[in-house]
Design a protein around this nucleic acid. Structure first.
Lengths: 192, 192, 192, 192
DNA sequence: GATGAATGAGTTTTCATTCAT
DNA sequence: CATGAATGAAAACTCATTCAT
């Protein structure tokens, strides 16, 4: 969290950080491939570290899951404003949707873990909402035209609907998700 | 023996069928509760049969998964026409969506299994499409008004989009899914 | 044992016997293929009967093993005199060795079962000796020439030595066993 | 890491090696006692390690079987020259036969596994031949006298014949096998 | 701090045996 | 008598987690 962390920077910190990063990167990939229940060994092998190292940095599996998700959520949230600044509204939305689709694909099975009742995940939905709600609201608002979003659909509703529509579909690619989100946006414009 | 199977189809088969049914029922419930990776014992205990019985009828876990999904798909498909006959288009759609939402909730994690690459599931997506595509097309078509569905969205696209929008969302219930599908349907009407 | 079996021949007896024969035949084949520990199902499937039928006729696995072995021992024993009557000594011996080799191949792993300590098999070694000892003694004696068998090698020793030399050898066929038995017979002739 | 393996070969390896040795030792004993299909637990208990350790070092049962057999083959092969140096030909042969008999007894049922068609064992017969063929040839040659071995019996034939004659026989001990091998050697001498 | 060997509980899977039809 | 479904004990195997080096 705090990047400054106060006092002495305690040598060797670089190596440790390198391992942590490698583990998160590896976990992201393995979660996508094999699912959240992937053997820990598969992750450490891919990260090139020993199993003990995983447990040092992430004593609980939920710690690793949380780290991966926050990492991903941050990346997605940050992409929103950047795209909006660079492209016109519709194009920005479409590109962000593509980006978000990749993120959701990562979650393959993470949702189940999230709602498993494990209190370790209690904070994540909030983090997800807080970070992404404004981003989606802004993107959709701009794309819908002059702020004519239906009043009966809250920004958080949008976030989740888009999250669903971004989920990967067997025979389809990101283009499919983009089209469906576009239809959904059309729906938002309609009516008073 | 008898290929025509004329007279009695080999008595006692009734018991076996009872067990098969109980297992599918139990598996459906356990899959929802614990996920597709639930211990086999949990399923057999709930079905009130021995573990061996599970393996007799479903030697591979994928056999059981397949059976449960086909069962569910069938039930959903059959509900479509019934609702359409009984209610006016919008109401029928909403009720079916609610029904479909339950089905999708059952799949909690089944999707991951489906796309696991196991060839045992190769046939299921086809089954899913074949059974449900016409149902969804019909329901949405009726709800959209006088056949004014966008021409650039195929019936199968609809099916999958609805499937996504029916996925359970953490803090929300079926009503949420219904509202989002409604928005989506509005999007379909636009640009007649 | 007793083929007459006294009183009424009890109808349907033919079917039962057919099943018993089929089971012994199937068991012989499966024991050779898969070993004595082959699943019972494999035997009944090959025999074309239900599993229950196996247990009716052979309540214990040792019953089946015993039946198969006696069957085989009988066949081998009976072949001896026949061959001796039909061929000259050396030729008769070689043909019988070939025959015996097949029998031994059947036993793939039966020996282990035999010496497993199960009292059910207590009678078999005796049966084996009683039936085959005279046959081997006669064949070897004739082949060795004018009764010049070494006095320090008993007939039973011969039986077992031949039994060993008839065991199948990976890259070799029955011809190999015949050659080795021939060498052994030569050894018998030598010395006073 | 270090391909030359110069300095310390990664400490702690000692413990692992100790476990591997204990497992091979235990497996040898258990295979003799209970057969190759003995429960893994029986082996690990005797070795004093956990079941997981067995699977770490020998993921497949065939790996363990192979290790045990190579171990045994090596020991037998090494005994040959030693005995030949210490005793006169006939005595050396007899002692080696006794040694070999013990080895074969160990295999109780291993042979069946070997010929099970499992490709994991493909290399073993070759190993067996390569290691033992010269040993047997040398021992028999010396025992047969001045190189008067029949020309129509190859060294490998001898190896297998002796292997068969060394197999344990129900009511007999190693002395029996020695006598029969002696007869066989006599047969070799004949027809110089 | 890092490593990976060891552990053993938890699951899957097989099969002999029983027994209702 | 024959059948094959049901059972469940026993064995195999996996993998999270600990801990000595």
């Amino acid at each position: 969290m705090s990047s400054t962390d106060g006092g002495r920077p305690r040598r060797k910190r670089a190596d440790a950080q390198r391992n942590v990063d490698a583990l998160i990167e590896a976990a992201k990939a393995v979660f996508t491939t094999t699912g959240v229940d992937a053997p820990a060994k598969e992750i450490t092998d891919r990260a090139g570290v020993g199993i003990g190292t995983l447990y040092r940095h992430f004593p609980l599996r939920s710690d690793l899951v949380t780290a991966v998700l926050q990492h991903e959520i941050d990346a997605c949230a940050e992409a929103g404003p950047v795209l909006q600044a660079e492209f016109e509204p519709t194009e920005a939305l479409m590109r962000w949707v593509a980006r978000f689709t990749e993120f959701v694909a990562t979650k393959r099975g993470l949702a189940a873990a999230l709602h498993s009742g494990d209190p370790a995940f209690d904070g994540l939905p909030g983090y997800f909402n807080d970070r992404l709600e404004p981003v989606v609201a802004s993107l959709l608002g701009a794309a819908a035209g002059t702020g004519t979003l239906r009043k009966d659909v809250a920004a958080r509703d949008l976030l989740h609907a888009v999250a669903l529509l971004c989920q990967p579909v067997p025979g389809e690619g990101p283009a499919y998700n983009q089209r469906m989100v576009a239809v959904f946006v059309d729906g938002l414009r309609r009516r008073s």
